[in-house]
Design a protein around this nucleic acid. Structure first.
Ligand SMILES: [Zn+2]
Ligand SMILES: [Zn+2]
Ligand SMILES: [Zn+2]
Ligand SMILES: [Zn+2]
Lengths: 139, 139
DNA sequence: GTGTGATTTGTTATGATATAACATCACAAC
DNA sequence: GTTGTGATGTTATATCATAACAAATCACAC
């Protein structure tokens, strides 16, 4: 249900996508704004509109628990993706897992609920932080 | 990992919990505040502190995708719960599902990620709204 | 190229959510 | 009664998001 739109990406959406891709970790709308001042972008609505365009195309995701946004690693997935968020270093890894997807779909069916969008976010500690004693800087 | 604290619930936390339980559907911190003015509560920090106390005890949950809070139906669960959120009528049903829990745990283990908290939120349409043509009022 | 409508963008202002900082109060422990 | 801890009150501010309207741009038919 994602990334099916082949129409050309508007200029600001492309700017935001490039910024997010380079950024790597989640960025808030205002962090994106600060990063793109001087490129003709000067106000929040411009960022939020560009983000909406990216979200609609599956080229970015909103991380609900952080009020932040990430570029999508692999837009081929079909909307049932998730994020592992390290609370120590701020890293976010996107994943898609068929077991989780099928479990969620079975549950929704059992509950007679018509799912349009799935949010799965794991907060915790990544392997790198555990191995290093979790003193990595926040991002 | 939830509801293990038996110490007496502070006054404001009890007020907020009662409000949420009566409310039934998710309420924002400011909706709670408006509902509790006149009971000695007059500013946001009081609400957020009470909510923190409830969250720590497992007596309430934050619904990330709504920036809102709900009283917990069944504090016996062990942190791996989820919500089915109807985008048409605003109803929210909390669920706990062992299949989803085990799938998430297996995934986290495979990714070498130490999970502290799991957020699962399904957005879509509830059975009542589908059956009635989805014209139910928002709440 | 011109008209036309749809989309995108710029801009100002405001709404909605959440926390910092600091003073005070309530209560139990000693 | 002093001390320590948790809870509360209060003001101000930080952070996240959208409403509303005007202007520019694009796509496409003619
Ligand atoms: Zn993705
Ligand atoms: Zn980490
Ligand atoms: Zn619960
Ligand atoms: Zn419904």
């Amino acid at each position: 249900m994602a990334s099916q739109q082949n129409s050309k990406l508007p200029k600001n959406a492309a700017l935001v996508h490039t910024f997010l891709a380079k950024h790597g970790s989640p960025a808030s709308a205002y962090e994106i704004l600060d990063g793109l001042r001087g490129k003709g972008i000067s106000a929040p609505p411009t960022i939020y509109r560009a983000l909406d365009q990216l979200l609609a195309r599956g080229l970015a995701h909103r991380v609900e628990s952080l009020n932040a946004f990430v570029a999508c690693d692999h837009p081929a997935h079909d909307d049932a993706n998730g994020f592992a968020i390290c609370q120590d270093c701020g890293s976010v890894r996107e994943f898609t897992d068929p077991e989780v997807v099928s479990a969620v779909n079975a549950l929704a069916k059992a509950q007679d609920f018509d799912v349009r969008h799935v949010t799965i976010e794991l907060a915790g500690q990544c392997a790198a932080c555990r191995d290093s004693g979790s003193e990595v800087s926040h991002g």
